[in-house]
Amino acid sequence: MEIYLPIAQMSVHWLIILSMGFVVGFLSGVFGVGGGFLLTPVLIFYGIPPGVAVATTASQIAGVTFSGVLTHWKRDSVDFKMGAVMIASGLVGSAIGVWLFAVLRRMGQAEFAISASYVILLGAVGAIMLNESVRSFAARREGRSGYGKKPGQHHWLHGLPFKIRFRQSRLYISAIPPLVLGLFVGILSAVLGVGGAFVMVPAMIYLLRMPTNVVVGTSMLQVLFVSASSTILHAVDNFTVDVVLALVLTIGGVFGVQYGVRAGAKLRGEELRFLMALLVLAVAAGLFYQLVVRPEDVYSLTAGAP
């Protein structure tokens, strides 16, 4: 049965949208990331206008993330102080991002900016993850346990001022790196319709050196607030949030996550990261291909003034 999306002003098949939500939710349950970076390109590919895809995905992420935050809160694996710092700058970032998105849309470059940013970000993150998972495969085969710098080692980031004690993370570091990270992820959330966990989680582990057990919960807390704010700002500034699309995607998503978490528990860490890296690189390659191959029609039509 077709359903009519009142904001996108088009009819879609509800089962296709529900499956997209489910599959992306499943993958995000398996890999422990939001999945926005998959959902937005898939929706655009299906024919949803990019603006609606970005804004609506942000609302889906907020819904899917909420139950994750609750679970981590119960397990006491959320650093609320770190979360608050990153939410503060994340909200500013999401406002900047929504404004930036409106400017890009008026220039007719929103689509290109979205695709190009995805290619760069996903390409970089995918390559890093692939490299890391392959090295830990190798390390395990040689009987070593992991690799990398030892915790407690000094880093230039530790020389920055405005130090704050984050008790939950057992860190005493400057507030600047988390603030910058939160801001960056906030901009990403608004422009690309992603939660940003795929950038934030590695940054928290490798740059901020947060203990792994609080990383996922804390990043989810930040993602929850920032994607909620992106959704609301997109609704107010760009009128691009489609509540019907959001409803179907979220229903698919929340169920997908639950099954994904179960499936993910059966896989080993390096295997997970290896598969995840392949997935991320595949999406990046697909988007890059669309940028470089001659389009079927070099002219494209957008209704309305922008």
């Binding site: 907020a62 909420f66 609301i232 229903i251």
Partner: peptide, 15 residues
Amino acid sequence: GVTTVLMGILLGWGS
């Protein structure tokens, strides 16, 4: 916008 977000959160929580 707020309603859309709350709807998503309720669905996530409900599940």
